[in-house]
Amino acid sequence: MKELFGSFLHPDEMALARQYMQDGYVIRDVEDTGSLDHLEDIIRTSVCSHLDTPSSRSGPDLLWRIHEYVTPDRLNDLRLRVIHDLNDAEHSLQSFYKCAASCLSTIVGNELAAQRSFALSIQMPDDDSSLLPAHSDVWSEDSPFEVVLWLPFVDCTGTMSMFLLPPSQTAWAHEQMVALQNEGVESFYGKISDLVVRPEVRRGQFMIFNHSLVHGNRVNVEGASRWSLNGRFKSLFSPYAEKRLGDYFVPITTRPATRLGMSYRLPDGFDE
């Protein structure tokens, strides 16, 4: 038998897998634009309600100009309101998943667990209150068997996007981190800042990235506000870390063979 494991993948899937392994991320067009629009409708309705602005008066640029309506000290209230409305809405997690379903299937698998409540990031220009320092999610509560789906609602270029340290630099970065153990995380960022990439992701596209890689964001100096959702996906039966099935992850595509297998009982009661 000559075939190697994984070689049964379609050539398109092989190309996607290679790109993900090499770059640590992939960017593709949203697979179901109706789902993207559904999520954006929820966001815009929530924003208009919070700002007491009739949705008819909010133009298409409402999101990327949100800094003209909200001061930084009121931003977190808005963010919490919108994330509440998103997670409370019917089918929002399903819509989020459908934006990238086939790509997730190729990279992660077809029997998935998803983060129960996805996260919303709003980064207004020059606002330093919503920053994530350089980190790997695996350094806290996540397992390296997860991926992050990152879905922007505005075009994200330059500092509106996140930064990511390419996989080829990971071993070196880990050495630097150990060497800088008595200094703060800003010193660590100073070491890696020339090596990070900032993937450009437009509205209508999504990014799936490896959250084991060092990543984060810096002050947005682009003049427009960033809006993006992010949520984790993993293979249902791959190892979990502290974010566990049930309280953090929920099964979303459990297959019938698994359901039947889990419930199967051998005939019982034989005597020796």
Binding site: P144, F145, F237, Y240, P251, M262
Partner: peptide
Amino acid sequence: EELILLDAWMPKAHLGGYWHK
């Protein structure tokens, strides 16, 4: 039941279903 059954099977999964760090 799905959440309970999946958890019951997890020790039989890869690495016992838990990534120790």
